[in-house]
């Protein structure tokens, strides 16, 4: 009996020897063993007097030559698919473990969803108007939409002025007024890029400055900060404000507020020159861009 069992085991080993992926080899071996058991049971049911040893031998004979069967099985069971599958399981497990570790170690959450910030001037148009009246002009103002502007491509980034408003005082401003501005431009600037790991530098909003076609310059937040040795305040001289409104992995929307010195100003250029860059985004205040 022991000899026969050994014979069966030997037959099974030979039949699965060509399958190189071990889990497959074990599974196929178990399946073949089950087939053998079934065949043996069938023989014993059909021929009740047959000794179990002979039933086993006959069952093995009925299964055929293990070497021929082994070659066929090896053809079907490609090892690379098994190894790749196992690798993918390991990869998934590692990623889950690393994500848990990352979450527990307090890493920054990924930029895979949209982050939004409220506008500094308020969410509603009337809020913004009130803020501009209060902090820039000190008098009642009216608005008109900014003309549609063209997009600017620069070194793989696309800059688009999406919408904007030009604000002007309703009445002529007194000569001895405290603030020197005659217009204010409020616009949203969308910047897009193609790879999530290459967002525009975080210092963009702080380094954005402007110049107008009358020869006036408007300091960036950073320039003002460095020059004035103090945090800038609203309504102070020739300062551009830029803040992030929304951020996704492929884009960022900035809010730009620019009080303009002269009512005759027809165009301003938003500039980013940090580190030697030379970005210029023209913004036409009236007429066609």
């Amino acid at each position: 009996m022991a000899d026969d069992k050994y014979g069966q085991a030997q037959w099974l080993d030979k039949a699965v020897a060509g399958i190189r992926f071990r889990p497959d080899r074990a599974a196929v071996r178990a399946e073949l063993a089950a087939h053998l058991e079934d065949k043996q049971a069938d023989l014993q049911r059909i021929f009740p007097d047959i000794p179990p040893q002979e039933a086993e031998v006959r069952a093995l004979e009925a299964m055929g030559d293990p070497e021929v069967l082994g070659r066929e099985l090896a053809k079907i069971h490609k090892p690379w698919l098994g190894y790749l599958w196992r690798l993918s399981q390991v990869l998934c497990t590692l990623v889950v473990l690393a994500a848990l570790w990352g979450a527990m170690s307090g890493s920054n959450p990924p930029d895979i969803w949209v982050h939004t910030n409220p506008s500094w001037l308020g969410e509603q148009p009337e809020d913004r108007q009130e803020e501009l009246e209060r902090i820039v002009f000190g008098s009642k103002i009216q608005s008109r939409p900014l003309p549609v502007q063209g997009a600017v491509e620069y070194r793989g980034y696309t800059f688009t002025v999406e919408e904007g408003t030009v604000w002007e005082p309703l009445a002529e401003m007194p000569e001895d007024r405290f603030v020197p501005y005659e217009q204010a431009v409020l616009l949203t600037l969308r910047v897009e890029w193609s790879r999530p790991d290459q967002p525009l530098a975080a210092n963009f909003s702080g380094e954005l400055w402007a110049e107008d076609d009358r020869g006036n310059g408007y300091l960036s937040y950073e320039d003002y900060y460095h020059n004035a040795d103090d945090m800038p305040r609203w309504g102070e001289a020739q300062l551009l404000h830029c803040g992030v409104l929304a951020r996704t992995p492929f884009s960022c929307v900035y809010e730009v507020v620019l009080p303009v010195l002269n009512q005759e100003t027809g165009q301003v250029k938003l500039r980013y020159t940090y580190g030697g860059a030379d970005l210029s985004i023209p913004v036409v205040l009236e007429g066609e861009p």
């Binding site: 990869l91 998934c92 990623v95 990352g102 890493s107 895979i112 790991d197």
Partner: peptide, 13 residues
Amino acid sequence: LGAVGGYLLWSFW
């Protein structure tokens, strides 16, 4: 799943 998780991790750090 591995690619999505890998991207999440990459962005996490």
